[in-house]
Simulated scan of single mutants.
Amino acid sequence: MSNPTRPLDEIAVLGLECWGHHGVFEFERRDGQSFVIDLVLGVDTRAAAASDDLRDTVDYGSLGASVQAAVEKDPVDLIETLAQRIADVCLLDDRVQWARVTVHKPDAPLDATFRDVTLTITREREVHRD
């Protein structure tokens, strides 16, 4: 159980390259494009450190595969919707207290020279009170 006054540890997966068919334009959905995902998760890793057992922490290999599958499925118009979908995947693991998700869209259809378009969201686990 994490202590609410102690900052959580952070597990990060940065630069996860995925292919998706998201966007408001027909050519984006038809042709697809690269999306790069950064994840930072708030997790208490003390149990895993004590046990040295993968079952006591977030398996970032499995998480990466789940996030990649989430990007590759059902096209959406907005990266806001995609980022929320990814955050929801991250929060499926009860050990994750919050998730910060950055969606990079380096090939966004802008009529200008640019390096990247990004959206970053942070979502916390909802506390259910009975």
Rank of each mutant, 00 (worst) to 15 (best):
V103E: 03
E26K: 02
W98S: 14
D44A: 11
G42H: 08
V67E: 00
H104K: 12
F27I: 12
I37H: 02
A83I: 00
F27Y: 15
L63N: 09
E124T: 12
A12S: 12
D31W: 15
H128R: 08
D130H: 09
L54K: 13
S62D: 15
A47D: 04
D93S: 07
A108R: 05
K73I: 05
D31H: 01
D59A: 11
F114Y: 14
L16F: 04
M1F: 14
E126K: 11
G42F: 00
R6W: 08
Q84P: 13
A47I: 08
D116F: 00
C90V: 02
S34Y: 01
V40A: 14
Q33H: 01
I86P: 00
V43A: 02
D9S: 12
E80D: 10
S34Q: 05
D74W: 07
D77T: 06
E124W: 14
K73N: 15
G23L: 12
V76R: 08
D74A: 14
L63Y: 03
V101I: 02
A65V: 07
G23N: 07
T122V: 07
V101W: 03
C18L: 12
F35I: 01
S66C: 15
D38R: 04
D93H: 14
D74Y: 07
R123P: 02
D44P: 03
D111G: 15
D88G: 06
T45G: 09
R85L: 00
V103L: 01
P75M: 07
C18F: 12
G61P: 05
I11N: 04
K105S: 02
D93A: 06
D52V: 00
A50R: 07
H21F: 10
D130S: 14
F35E: 07
V71P: 00
H22V: 05
W98N: 08
D31F: 12
V71L: 05
A70P: 11
T113K: 13
A12T: 11
R85D: 00
V58C: 10
S2N: 09
G32S: 05
L14Q: 10
D53Y: 04
V89M: 04
P75R: 14
P75Y: 10
G15H: 00
T45R: 13
A48M: 00
F25H: 12
D93N: 09
